[in-house]
Design a protein around this nucleic acid. Sequence first.
DNA 1: CGAATCTCCTGGAGGC
DNA 2: TGCCTCCAGGAGATTC
Length: 271
Amino acid sequence: MPELPEVETTRRGLLPLVGKVVKSVSIRHPTLRWPIPQSLLQILPNQTLRGLTRRAKYILCEYDTGTLLLHLGMSGRIQLLDTPYPPEKHDHFDIEFADGHVLRLRDPRRFGAVLWIDNKDNNHVLLNSLGPEPLVVDFNAKYLHTALSNKTLAIKNAIMDGHVVVGVGNIYASESLFRARIHPETAANKLTLKQCERLVAEIKSTLNDALSAGGSSLRDFFGVDGNIGYFQQEYFVYGRTNEPCKVCAKLIKCIRLGQRSTFYCDKCQKR
DNA sequence: CGAATCTCCTGGAGGC
DNA sequence: TGCCTCCAGGAGATTC
């Protein structure tokens, strides 16, 4: 489900929890991508949530003794409830706060993660080797051009590699490449500096536009309040196989790249 | 080292 | 209605 805009939308929706004190933790189904540590049952109660940040597609919940790391995987969503309603089938994890509010993680496919990073072992291995955030100035044409210089794989796969840039998943990779008029199969190291400039700009604009729309809701994604995002209405290519290109009217194509569906217009996007 | 493939898991859609 | 196959927004692990 969630790429950067959906994760960031989720984080923003959870901000009202900052400053609240944890009352209890419920772990109903601990086997996500990695086991949810049972130690959270002792660690979190009575701690105050000090801050909520995001790195890549991880939501980082900051407490005095460490950081709770949340990842939504493919099908995860987080709800913010004002009272602990009865959990449903795939509601695997709750944090209940002293005032009754509940952070609830639902994840049918269980590719998500709930992990604890204690302050004394900072620099979690999952966060160590991540590339730059796409929306900061460090992610620019010069950086991207250098990062791609020794890569022969398809540019679409390259921008989905978290070592190159984080937060760009399967939807926004196709959309950004369409907006930049770059064919997804172009070898990464064949992009000119000029093309990198365009691609960086379009990745930023695509993600920002999606953020403004509250993310994309195809099936699993809802905001923490249950509201959907609307960016899917603005897709140029994703999921539009054989529909006319919104720019040139030629039919949109779908191919597999790295086992993922990839959408493009072969008239607008050149190698 | 880079690149391609495999893997985890459930659910929905479509064919028969 | 049921059974089968395929596909789905991630990304670490494994293999070549």
